[in-house]
Amino acid sequence: MSTLLSARRVVVTQRFFDAQARAFLEQHGCTVSEVELPAGVADGDLGVDVLRRHLEGAQGWIVGHARVDDELLRALPALRVIARRGVGHERVDQDAVRRHGKVATIAAGGNDAAVADHAIALMLAVGRRLHEARAQLVAGDWSIPLATELYRKTVGVVGLGRIGRGVVRRLRGFEARVLIATPERDEAFAAEQGARFVGLDELLACADIVSLHAPLTPATHSLIDAAALTRMKRGAILVNTARGGLVDDAALLAALEEGRLGGAGLDVFESEADPGLQAVTHALLRLPQVVATPHAGASTAESLARTNLIAARCVVQVLDGQTPAAECLLADGRSPNLSR
C-alpha cells in the first residue's frame, strides 16, 4: 500500500458506526478512528479544543451534530472532507468550508424512510393517546381514553423534500386528504398522490394534523409561532420531526396548556440549539398529550447503516479526487467551479 493511501486517516465522532462502513473505508486505504463519547454526550456537545485534538492530522471526518465553523477549520489544515451522517446542515458554515478549500457533504437519501415512518408513528401515537393510556395503566386505571383516527383525516405537510414526499406517500394508505405548503410546487407529484398545494395559512386552518418537514433557515425559523398556532384548527395535532427551530416551543406549550391544540408529536426541540430553553422542553415533556422522542427519527439500524455507508463513500470520493453526487455535495472549496 502506498504511503499516500496509508496516511488517509478518517475520524468518526458519531455513535453506531457499523462494521460495513468501517470495512468500506479500510478497503479504500483509510485508517479509521472512532471517538468514544461518554453516555449522554453527542459530538455537538464537544468544544472546539476537544474536537481539534481528536481531528488533528485527519483527512476525513464523519460528523453528527458538531458545529463546523471557521475557527475549527482553521485549526485543521490536513482535513479535506467533512461528511455529515445526516441531511441537516445548519451547523455547517458552508462559506468557511469553501474558504479553507475543503469539501462538506450530507448523506442524502439515507434516512428518508426512517424519518417518514417516525412522523407517521407520532401522528398515530398522539391521536390514539398512547402516552396517556400507558400512564393510566401503570397507575392501575383501566379506563379508556377516547382517541382519534388518522384514517381520512386532513393532514398538512409543510415542506416537500425527500422526507415530506415519503410522508405524503405513506398517508395514501390512510386515505388521508393531504394539503402541502412549500415554496416549490411539484404538481405532477401532487396529482399522482392525490394531494393539493395550498398556502400555509389555509393549511393551518384546515388540517387536523400539521407535520413539519421544512429545512431550518432564517426564513423558516419560528415558522410555527404564536400567531401560526392560533390559526390552526382547535384540537389539531402538531408533529415536528424536522428541526426544533421551526417551532416557537414556548408558544406551543401555551397552546397545549390552554387546550387549543389536541396534542403534539415532537422529535426535536428548540433547546437542542439553545440550552436556555430546557425548562420549556421539560414542561412540554410533562404534558400527557405530548409524545416525544430524543431526536431519534433517523435512528434505526437500517437508516444508520445507509447513512454511514453514504458518508463513507463521500469521504473516499473526495480523498480520491472525485466529486460526490450532487444531492450529497454541500460545499466544495477545491475549485470555484465545483462550489454550489
Score class of each variant (00 low, 15 high):
1 M>D: 09
3 T>Y: 09
5 L>S: 14
6 S>Q: 09
7 A>R: 15
9 R>P: 04
12 V>W: 01
14 Q>T: 15
16 F>W: 09
16 F>A: 14
17 F>S: 00
18 D>N: 13
19 A>V: 09
24 F>W: 13
24 F>I: 13
26 E>Q: 08
28 H>F: 09
31 T>G: 07
36 E>P: 03
38 P>M: 11
41 V>H: 00
49 D>C: 00
52 R>Y: 07
55 L>K: 09
56 E>V: 08
57 G>M: 13
62 I>R: 01
63 V>F: 08
64 G>R: 00
64 G>D: 00
72 L>V: 10
76 L>G: 07
76 L>I: 09
77 P>K: 08
83 A>M: 07
85 R>I: 06
86 G>E: 05
86 G>I: 11
87 V>C: 07
88 G>M: 01
89 H>C: 00
91 R>I: 09
92 V>F: 06
97 V>M: 05
102 K>I: 11
110 G>A: 13
110 G>T: 13
113 A>Y: 10
118 H>Q: 05
120 I>N: 00
121 A>D: 02
132 E>C: 08
132 E>R: 06
132 E>S: 12
134 R>C: 15
134 R>S: 15
135 A>V: 13
137 L>C: 08
138 V>Y: 12
139 A>L: 10
139 A>D: 14
140 G>N: 02
141 D>C: 08
143 S>P: 03
144 I>M: 10
145 P>W: 14
148 T>I: 10
156 G>N: 10
156 G>A: 10
156 G>F: 12
156 G>I: 15
157 V>S: 04
158 V>H: 02
161 G>H: 09
163 I>W: 03
165 R>Q: 14
167 V>R: 03
173 G>S: 12
173 G>V: 14
175 E>D: 14
178 V>N: 06
179 L>N: 05
182 T>K: 04
182 T>Y: 07
183 P>H: 04
185 R>A: 11
186 D>A: 01
188 A>L: 13
189 F>L: 05
193 Q>T: 10
194 G>Q: 02
194 G>N: 00
199 G>E: 15
201 D>R: 15
204 L>P: 03
206 C>T: 15
212 L>W: 07
212 L>S: 01
215 P>C: 14
215 P>H: 14
215 P>R: 10
218 P>A: 12
221 H>Y: 07
222 S>M: 05
223 L>N: 01
223 L>G: 02
224 I>Y: 06
226 A>E: 14
227 A>Q: 14
228 A>V: 11
229 L>S: 02
229 L>H: 03
232 M>G: 13
234 R>K: 12
234 R>S: 12
237 I>L: 11
239 V>H: 08
242 A>P: 02
244 G>P: 11
244 G>T: 14
247 V>L: 03
255 A>M: 08
256 L>P: 07
259 G>S: 07
260 R>E: 05
260 R>F: 09
262 G>E: 08
267 D>H: 10
270 E>G: 10
273 A>R: 11
275 P>Q: 11
276 G>A: 00
276 G>P: 03
277 L>K: 03
281 T>Y: 13
282 H>N: 12
283 A>R: 06
286 R>H: 10
290 V>G: 05
292 A>H: 11
295 H>T: 15
298 A>N: 06
299 S>A: 13
300 T>F: 08
308 N>W: 12
309 L>A: 04
311 A>Y: 04
311 A>R: 01
315 V>D: 02
320 D>Q: 04
321 G>S: 05
324 P>A: 02
326 A>N: 05
327 E>Q: 06
328 C>L: 05
330 L>G: 02
335 S>V: 12
336 P>A: 06
340 R>C: 15
